[in-house]
Amino acid sequence: MTDSSKFRKTIDLLPGDLYVEILKSFRKFGVFGCQIAIIREIDGEVEPLGVSYPIGTLDGKTDVVGEDIFPLGGSTLFIALVALHKALELKGYSLTTPLKEVVSEMTLLDNGIDETKNCVDILNHKKCTSGEIDENAKKIIEQLSKKDYVTFVQEEVLTACNMKCSKIEQGKVWSNGRDLLKFHCNPQFSKLYGHILIEDHQSSSQSRLVKSTYAGVEVYEIESEDDQYGNLTVILGGHRTQLIVLYKKSDGKQGREKEDFVAWLKPRLIEHLSKLVVQQ
C-alpha cells in the first residue's frame, strides 16, 4: 500500500512557473480546475513522486480538494485490465491466454472479435473514450468470478488498493489523483499495463493507447472528454514514468477551444517528466 506521507506537495512536484502557467491557462481554455499525479519507476520498482494538490475550482467558486472525484473516461482502461486479469487468474488463465480457450462456452457479443487473439485484445478491440468498458470484457469477468462487474471491480480493485474515494456510478469509474496514485503504484498492476499494453500496441492497429513523440520523448497516451470533464494518462516509453491529469470544464468555451487545454498542457508536463527521468 502506498504511504500517503510520501506524497509531495504541488510546489515540489511542479516547477513554480509551470504551476502558475497552468493556473492562468484555465480561463483561456475553459477549465475550472484539475488534479495532476506523477508516477515514476526506478530499478523495476514504482516509486511515487507524488500527487499534486488540486489546482483551481469545481465551479468557479468552490476550490477543488483532494477528496473530489472525476470520471476516468478512457483511462478506465487500466482499471478494466486489472479486473480482467484478476478474474482470469481465478480459473488459471492469464491475459495472454488465447481468447478461444477462455470463451469456449461463452457467446461473445461482438462476433467481429477474432478468437485467436488473447484477452487484452478485447479491451483494445475498439476505441472507447466514454469510460464504458467493452461488454465482452464484462461478460468474461462476470462468468469467471460469478459476481456482477461493478461488485467485482469495487471489491477486487478499488477496495483492494484502498482507493477510499473511488466508486462506480452509472457504469463509470470515478476517482481522484490520490487514489490513482495508490492504484498505479501497485507493482503487480503496473507490470500488467506497463508491459502488456505497450507490447500489444506494437502488434495491434486497434490499440487504444496512442503512440506519440514530444520533443524527442516517446510516449503512449490515452485521453477523453465529455461536456463537463476530461482526462489524460501518459506513459513515457522506456521509462514507465506516468502522468495523470483529471480536469473539470467550465461553460465559457466550447468545442475545439476546450480540447486545446490538453494540447497545450501535454508537451509542458512531458518535458518536465523527461527531466525527472534524467535526474533519477
Rank of each mutant, 00 (worst) to 15 (best):
K248T: 06
N162I: 13
Y53M: 04
K117H: 09
L58C: 10
V173K: 00
N231V: 13
Q188A: 09
A137P: 04
K146E: 09
S175K: 06
D227L: 14
M163G: 02
T241C: 05
Y229D: 05
K91F: 11
I270Y: 01
L246S: 06
L88I: 02
A137F: 03
V150F: 13
G171T: 12
I39H: 08
L72K: 01
D227I: 07
V103P: 05
W174G: 10
V217T: 14
I122N: 00
V210N: 11
V277K: 04
N231P: 05
Q206I: 14
S145Q: 03
H184W: 12
Q170R: 13
G30F: 00
K211C: 13
D59K: 03
S190Q: 00
G252E: 13
S5H: 03
K100D: 09
E101I: 09
E67T: 11
K167L: 15
S94Q: 04
Q279P: 01
R8M: 15
L123V: 07
I168N: 07
V150R: 10
A263M: 05
G30T: 06
D251S: 08
K258C: 11
S75I: 12
F261D: 02
K117M: 10
V234F: 01
Q188L: 08
M106R: 08
L18D: 03
V20D: 05
L108P: 01
G230S: 07
K164V: 05
K127N: 14
E221W: 10
E199F: 06
K100F: 10
R27V: 15
